[in-house]
């Protein structure tokens, strides 16, 4: 494969053609001829045949949403999750407060205290999902990869301000033991299998 083909930006010349649109008829006789040709050429029946064919093929594309859901990409930024350490099972959050600081819509509130081991412990942690714009800065800034975005996008509520608490976001301990917690590959990670759907750059040849 030659390199020139990729430098040619004029990709579509050969495959394109002008759609043949007739001029709008001016005279009554012209209009009549148009109607006659349109109704006698069988275009109407082509339309009927196409929809009937689709009906018998029964190739249905409906996703019955509440019962079945489409998979979403790993880079999707939905309601946050709090991860645990894989080895010990303790929560990763060290209460540094960076996420609270960087949050541009000011929706994260946290409260910490020193526990008996002089380690910081999170006592209160809540995100106001009514304010959150799901920008992903909190996940980006987190030094411990503790707060990440999950895949739960259904957050309709009766009030504008509705909150998600630390305990709700935290991976349940039995889910962790069952190996259901997945490591966050990092902010801006490549979608798995995306290599196949992307054309390679010329350098690859």
């Amino acid at each position: 494969m030659s390199f020139e083909k990729f430098k040619d930006r004029n990709v579509g010349e050969d495959g394109y053609y002008m759609v043949d649109i007739e001029d709008y008829p001016e005279t009554g006789w012209g209009k009549f001829k148009q109607v006659a040709s349109r109704s006698l050429k069988g275009e109407l029946f082509v339309g009927l045949w196409v929809v009937l064919r689709e009906m018998f093929k029964f190739d249905i594309h409906t996703v019955q949403y509440p019962k079945e859901k489409l998979p979403i990409g790993p880079r999707y930024r939905a309601v946050h999750k709090m991860l645990r350490l894989f080895e010990s099972g303790t929560e990763r959050c060290i209460g540094c407060g960076l996420c609270e600081k960087i949050c541009i819509s000011d929706c994260i509130r946290m409260d910490t205290k020193y526990d008996e081991n002089s380690r910081k412990e999170v006592t209160e942690y809540s995100i106001n999902l009514g304010r959150c714009i799901f920008c992903g800065y909190c996940a980006e800034v987190c030094p411990e990869l503790a707060i990440v975005h999950g895949g739960r996008y259904e957050n309709a509520s009766e009030q504008r301000a509705h909150f998600v608490e630390f305990e709700d976001m935290l991976t349940p301990i039995d889910a962790l033991k069952a190996g259901q917690q997945e490591e966050f590959p990092g902010f801006g990670a490549i979608i798995p299998g995306s290599d196949k759907s992307v054309k390679k750059t010329p350098l690859a040849y």
Partner: peptide
């Protein structure tokens, strides 16, 4: 139903 099937819906 008929319209839906003809438009590939349920």
């Amino acid at each position: 139903k008929v319209l839906a099937f003809m438009q590939r819906r349920l």
